[in-house]
């Protein structure tokens, strides 16, 4: 992989200066951050890597990320990004805006590198560093709600309907247009909101609320809100795979209908209006060979399985395993509030 026409290792060996662009580099433990100040006129080669060995994710919401072996290079703040393929190589060209950054991470494994990339974006590139706060954590935890219940998004904002559902203990989420509307429904007891425009001061004002951003990119949403709605139709399979990884950092909710719900379950997407699949069950993503990704998971009934996604053929293949022993579970709540989970053989 080459960045700004140099081998990655050169950036780690010595401070780097370039005559053609204003550049500042910051060394982290296993990373280099190149900050470029462009005038918006120069278009140049940002990155080049071998197509056959590279994971690349170029969807806007996920930023431009390229992973080759133990090296990840991601960039942000460029205009008119163009990805071109030629002679087995992938090239990325673009114009740097006023504050563009290229982050290079060398580490063990894609997941670690990805995490470092986002941390560096937060810490060194001006993104918020505040971690999302969950509705279900700490003082805000409402004992009467089952944390695994679906988040029901209401299209109607009828106060009577909202009140009725809240009384039944349903987690209700509402689209709100502005803070005035947010405030009204907050007073009615709603604690989950979908917003097009999130302001940091909402955190203090509505400290026990769960905020989902209607639109936005992952990198900037990750430090601010509790979830993000993404349109699955915009994603290629490769990008869905990456979104699955990112989803460990931020719950992503899917706005499109008619998508393969199994695939979404596997990747751990939260799905608005459906049962939210919090996902310890998704276990691993491996690139088996070029263009073929295998995802291991455990179904909600604990049956291990795998799905293989062949990007080149645009096909999805499922492998299920049926457990020989099938246990039936019955959960009782005692008077003192403790849960007792009874297991016996049988189909649940």
């Amino acid at each position: 992989m080459r960045v700004l026409k140099k081998e990655i290792s050169e950036f780690f060996q010595a401070p780097f200066a370039d005559d053609t662009i204003s550049l500042r580099n910051i060394h982290s433990k296993n990373a280099v951050i190149l900050k470029l100040k462009g005038n918006g006129e120069q278009r140049f080669e940002i990155l080049r890597c071998e197509r056959v060995s590279c994971w690349s994710f170029a969807q806007r919401a996920l930023r431009h990320i390229f992973i080759e072996g133990n090296t990840l290079a991601g960039f942000t703040g460029f205009e008119e990004i163009q990805i071109e393929e030629e002679a087995g190589h992938v090239y990325a060209f673009g114009k740097p805006l006023y504050e563009a950054s290229v982050v290079i991470v060398r580490g063990s494994g894609r997941l670690n590198s990805l995490k470092s990339f986002y941390e560096l974006l937060w810490n060194c590139c001006g993104f918020s560093t505040k971690m999302p706060r969950s509705l279900l954590m700490g003082d805000s935890f409402n004992e009467t709600l089952d944390r695994r219940d679906a988040l029901l998004v209401l299209s109607s904002k009828s106060e009577a309907k909202v009140k009725d559902l809240l009384e039944k203990g349903v987690r209700v989420a509402l689209h709100v247009e502005n803070e005035r509307e947010l405030d009204i429904f907050y007073r009615s007891g709603v604690r989950s909101f979908i917003l097009s425009d999130f302001k940091n001061e909402y955190r203090e004002r509505y400290a026990d609320c769960f905020f989902i951003l209607q639109e936005g990119d992952v990198a900037s949403a990750i430090g601010k809100v509790d979830g993000l709605i993404v349109d699955i139709k915009e994603f290629s399979l490769e990008e869905i795979v990456l979104a699955g990884l990112v989803n460990r950092l931020l719950p992503l909710y899917v706005s499109a209908e008619g998508v393969d719900s199994k695939l979404l379950d596997v990747l751990g997407f939260g799905a608005i209006g459906w049962r939210r699949c919090t996902n310890p069950v998704f276990t691993r993503i491996e690139q088996k060979r070029y263009g073929i990704y295998e995802i291991s998971y455990v179904s909600e009934t604990n049956v291990p399985g795998r799905v293989r996604i062949d990007v080149s053929k645009d096909s999805v293949e499922w492998f299920f395993e049926q457990s020989e022993i099938s246990l039936k579970k019955q959960t009782l709540e005692r008077e003192d509030g403790r849960y007792f989970h009874f297991y016996r053989e049988g189909v649940s």
């Binding site: 935890f141 455990v298 053989e345």
Partner: peptide, 23 residues
């Protein structure tokens, strides 16, 4: 052995369920 096999299955289920708690 059958009872231990059931125990393993129960551990699997407990692992999956307990990890779903946010805390």
């Amino acid at each position: 052995l059958r009872q231990i096999e059931k125990l393993v299955e129960m551990w699997v289920d407990r692992t999956v369920e307990l990890f779903t708690y946010d805390f």
